[in-house]
Nucleic acid binder design. Structure first.
Lengths: 241, 241
DNA sequence: TCGCATTTGTGCGTATGTATT
DNA sequence: AAATACATACGCACAAATGCG
């Protein structure tokens, strides 16, 4: 067996520092206009060299999150983060109202496929049964906020993809099938590094973290109608229960 | 201003491969006993050299997630992940019942400190006010599952640390202050890389991802009683709403 | 205006990690 | 297994801008 002497975890220190500082900022510990601790102090805090801290700050400056001023310090420039509420009656658009000006969802297409074990279990059908798969990408004020994939039982929602493209809204598409109301049955939240496709579509740097929500919606009678897998950039969103 | 030509995201390729394969396993695409694609195929899939893939597999083997057998292939050994329920009446122990045999929490001590802006806001007190800070580490079947820090208003819960050490349970400690019932007011979920302390205590590889839950509990009258920050290893846990 | 401490900006040398061939 | 190229991280030194007395 290969012995791994490796003590670094394959994630560069500067990136961990980027994540830590950004979390302090978007999490509210540091407000817009606040001065960050000096590079020397940050280096001490993260047990890193000042160069390494400077690299992290350079990344954040590139993003517009902080700005350095020679002789004065480094300051927080932009501190906003979106909160996405999760609950019984979660609706994407309503949830983010008031937080953003503009809001848009791009439909990335739909197709028929055979249900995975996870999708089948969630929808209460047998694995391998035909399901409609719908892909979408949602942006707020031009910044990608969510990459989602939704599966629906083909027997009940054969033309869901077309309905959705026409009606532009899940709520309305469900209405066209006689579902006046629906609610969230369960949401499972996990987290991982973004894959290549997500990195590109969500405009992330490789190695960024995504929050993954696995949601099952049910109609008024409690029957599962959709199984959705949404990926949120952890650096831009937090989920609120 | 320093120009960042860097296009890599500070995450080593072998680690991205580790994460991707582990995701297939804990996500259900690969079940226990399944044979992984050959190293050559994986190398092709990730656009990496076979050396790099072998390194990733070595890490997963070290974790016990996969095992390589010469001449036969590499197989999935262990595929389980725990689910932690979040809701109005979340209690840690009850939530994980049935999923684990043994369950233990180590109290890592407590102390007095001045409330951070976040803690103060959550507890409805002024920033800088005295708060009790309690540290804990919870393990299931000997595997660390959660590292948590809880803050409480000193004026109401001066001896909470001592009570907790004696009574061994938050619920009972709250009872000793006359709080027969409490419930979850809000939970915010975010995600980031584990810091050094978390890496050590949760027995993670450096660079691993933690799910961070910021929870506020309130008494029957709706008054905030505690503000807790829990960190879960994303590779071992998921949160269920 | 000057001096001084603080803080960011820059250069260079070295060691180790990463990834490929 | 070895050789190569590049990224990461550190240590030290010094320059440049700022703010204060």
């Amino acid at each position: 067996m290969t012995v791994l002497k490796d003590v670094s975890g394959g994630v560069a220190l500067w990136r961990q520092i980027v994540d830590a500082i950004r979390l302090d900022i978007v999490g509210g510990k540091l407000a817009a206009g606040d001065r960050l601790p000096t590079e020397a102090v940050l280096a001490e805090r993260f047990s890193a060299n000042r160069h390494t801290v400077r690299r992290a700050l350079a990344v954040l400056a590139e993003e517009g999150v902080v700005g350095a001023e020679q002789g004065r310090g480094t300051f927080v420039r932009n501190a906003k983060r979106l909160s996405y509420p999760i609950g019984k009656r979660t609706r994407f658009r309503e949830g983010l109202k008031g937080q953003v000006e503009d809001f848009s969802t791009i439909r990335l297409g739909h197709r028929l496929e055979n249900a995975s074990a996870a999708a089948a279990k969630a929808l209460g059908i047998r694995a391998g049964a035909k399901v409609v798969r719908v892909e979408g990408l949602t942006s707020a004020d031009g910044v990608p906020m969510s990459r989602s994939t939704t599966w629906l039982d083909y027997r009940r929602f054969a033309d869901f993809g077309e309905q959705l493209e026409q009606l532009k809204s899940f709520t309305k598409a469900f209405e066209s099938y006689g579902i006046a109301d629906y609610s969230r049955a369960s949401t499972r939240i996990s987290s991982r590094h973004a894959d290549i496709e997500e990195t590109k579509l969500l405009k992330l740097v490789p190695g960024a973290i995504v929050l993954v929500s696995e949601a099952v919606d049910v109609d008024a009678g409690g029957t599962p109608i959709s199984y959705a897998l949404s990926r949120f950039p952890a650096e831009r969103m937090e989920l609120v229960v």
